[in-house]
Each structure stands twice: as structure tokens, then as C-alpha cells.
Simulated scan of single mutants.
Amino acid sequence: MKLRSRIGLTLGMLLSSLALAVPNSASAAALACDNFGCDGHDPNIQSWDSGPVTPHGPYDLGNSFSYELRWGKTDGDQYSWGRFKYISGSGAQDWSVYVQRCTKDHSTCYWRLGLKEGGASGWTAKVPDTANFYQTRTPMYYNPSTHEMRACVENPSGRQYCTPWY
């Protein structure tokens, strides 16, 4: 009996591990979103009720760098994310893009949500109809009416540039 229990336990652990290793269906299809439950998901695979649009930006940083805050509404909820645009070979891998979310009174804030380095695998795409421009995006984060968000980029020396709050 002990051997059976041990084999069953081992088999159960193996199957659980395999289930965790299977890619999330979000990588293949849009998710049904519910408030903070979609925090951290890829906005590029989402289906949108309205948007996505750019309420703030793009802001020019010089040297072919710019950043913006993106916004969209899905399943009746609002989400925001940041996007960093740059030219190939510009050293963008030394920059970071992320979003910040706070309650309207700023009593509770999250400062570096979705941090991605320029060129991050799976979060970077070529800008359509350009020779060699790319953009790296952050994941999307819930932006209810009780909160506000902004997108930020950070250069190699640690200087932060942020959009206005939205």
C-alpha cells in the first residue's frame, strides 16, 4: 500500500508540474478580463471594446527614443500600459519601461509595474511601416476610476521620465 501511495503522489506531482509548464491560453487567445485579474497580461493579444489609444504621448526623448501611455477598455474595464519606441542599434536594451498605478489620493501606489527592458523578448515588436524602429510594451494593468496611471521610462543612468497621470 505504501508503494502505491508513493507512486500516486509522485505521479500527481509530475502531472501538476506539467500543467504549470503548459503555456497560458492567454498567449494564444484574448482573455476575458475582470478587474485586477488581468494585471500583467499582454495587451497585444487582447480584444478591445474601445481603444487602444494613446491618451498621453508619445513624448520625444531625443536620439530616436519616445514613450507613451496606452489605454483600452475590455469586458467593461479600463486598462493601461506603457510603450517605449526606439531605433534598432540605439542601446535601448539599457532603458526600461514600466507603469505606475496609484489611488487618486496617492495613499496606495505601485511604482514599477510590468518593468521591461528595451528589446525584451515577447514584449517587443517592429513598428509597422518603418525601416528599423521597434517598440517594447509593458503588460496591461487595471485602471479603474478610483485610480490613475502613468507610463515611465528610465535611462541607463537611472533618470526617470513619466507621462502625466491618467
Score class of each variant (00 low, 15 high):
2 K>A: 15
3 L>N: 05
3 L>Q: 06
17 S>C: 13
22 V>L: 15
24 N>Y: 05
25 S>G: 07
27 S>G: 15
32 A>C: 08
34 D>K: 00
34 D>A: 12
43 P>A: 06
45 I>Y: 12
45 I>R: 13
49 D>T: 01
49 D>L: 08
49 D>P: 01
50 S>P: 00
50 S>Q: 07
51 G>F: 08
52 P>M: 08
52 P>N: 06
53 V>M: 12
55 P>V: 09
55 P>S: 13
57 G>N: 02
62 G>F: 10
62 G>H: 05
62 G>W: 06
64 S>D: 13
65 F>S: 05
66 S>H: 04
66 S>G: 08
68 E>G: 10
70 R>W: 07
71 W>V: 03
75 D>G: 03
78 Q>D: 12
81 W>S: 04
83 R>S: 15
84 F>K: 04
86 Y>M: 07
88 S>D: 14
90 S>P: 05
93 Q>W: 09
94 D>R: 05
95 W>C: 09
95 W>P: 06
104 K>P: 02
105 D>R: 02
106 H>F: 14
109 C>S: 02
109 C>G: 00
110 Y>T: 01
113 L>H: 00
113 L>K: 01
118 G>C: 10
118 G>I: 09
120 A>H: 06
121 S>P: 01
121 S>L: 10
127 V>N: 07
129 D>L: 15
129 D>I: 03
130 T>V: 08
131 A>T: 07
131 A>I: 07
132 N>F: 13
133 F>I: 04
134 Y>F: 15
137 R>E: 11
142 Y>K: 02
142 Y>V: 00
142 Y>S: 06
143 N>A: 15
151 A>C: 10
151 A>E: 06
153 V>S: 05
154 E>I: 05
157 S>I: 10
159 R>N: 11
159 R>T: 14
159 R>H: 09
165 W>V: 05
